[in-house]
């Protein structure tokens, strides 16, 4: 892994300094946080960039804060921190559950929420749980901040709405409302260190026997993690009955277009997507 040693790496001590480095084309570099994705990609053969900027440990990217309506998570917060955070467990339980399924403890200690989102893998473990919150990513550059709804943040396979001089600084994630349920389930080939075949997160509420709110997101079923807007729209006001759930299963399955790859088959993924959505909305 000597090829990595040819890259330059800067260690800015403040966010401002990091954004300065990013602003200037001659000092701009690939942002490296925990390394749990990038170091793997470089080890697996991807050529490392000539310049890297380490943002690990930047204070401005740390911390989980709570305000009235939302939990605000710094981009540099690790999976280990997220899964054990009381506010996350209480207000964003799907996210806490998702963070607990990332790799093993070692990876959870290294990997960050910002890195997981920036890597933009369709199998990124946190994305479904983030998408169902209706929250926002806040990105910063030297000239200021920009807020982007997470549902619009993932543009394509491994691409997010981020300009070369910007970095993700935090996520603003609305708490689930009273009466709203959040659930998460990941299917992998083994119990730990699994990369998902399909994963699903849902936030919904049922009032007087009918669905009142509903957000559903699926990962590993397309080039990006997706919400299911058609299903979500259809289900509002429907009774939480066996007929509705059977229809949910069919509609969810119809709304995704997964592919065959080394982890699973398109057919199974399509089918099980419906099964998972049904299961989560049953709970």
């Amino acid at each position: 892994m000597k090829k990595l040693e040819k890259s330059d790496c800067r260690f800015p001590s403040t966010l401002k300094e990091a954004l300065e480095l990013l602003a200037n084309e001659s000092t701009r570099g690939r942002l490296l946080a925990g390394g749990s994705d990038l170091m793997v990609q470089w080890a697996a053969g991807m050529e490392p960039p000539p310049r890297v900027i380490s943002i690990k440990g930047l204070k401005e990217l740390q911390g989980i804060k709570e305000d009235d309506g939302a939990v605000v998570i710094g981009a540099g917060v690790t999976h280990a921190h997220i899964r054990s955070s009381k506010p996350v467990q209480k207000h964003l339980p799907a996210l806490a559950a998702a963070a607990a399924t990332v790799g093993g403890p070692q990876i959870q200690a290294l990997g960050t929420i910002g890195g997981n989102v920036a890597n933009a893998s369709p199998a990124g473990d946190l994305a479904p749980a983030l998408l169902i919150t209706g929250g926002e990513a806040v990105v910063a550059s030297r000239t200021g901040e920009r807020t982007i709804p997470l549902t619009k943040f993932f543009l394509a396979y491994r691409r997010i709405d981020l300009k070369p001089d910007e970095m993700i600084v935090r996520f603003v994630l609305p708490k689930r409302a009273a009466g709203e349920i959040e659930v998460f389930r990941k299917l992998g080939t083994r119990a730990a260190q699994a990369i998902s075949k399909v994963m699903c997160a849902a936030r919904f509420s049922v009032k007087a026997g009918s669905f009142e709110t509903c957000a559903v997101a699926l990962g590993s079923v397309g080039p990006t993690t997706v919400r299911l807007p058609k299903l979500e729209e259809w289900i509002i006001g429907k009774s939480a009955s066996e007929e509705t759930l059977a229809e949910v299963e069919k509609r969810a399955s119809d709304e995704v277009s997964p592919i065959d790859d080394i982890r699973s088959t398109a057919e199974y993924r399509k089918w099980v997507s419906g099964r998972l959505v049904r299961f989560l909305l049953e709970s």
Binding site: T189, A191, A192, Q193
Partner: peptide, 27 residues
Amino acid sequence: LMEKMGIRNGKYDADRMQTYIVPTMPD
């Protein structure tokens, strides 16, 4: 139950520990 390996373009497709899946302790 887990260790699946195919051949694609003459090459084993599960060619790393990330893709060749063996049991972990919780399994």
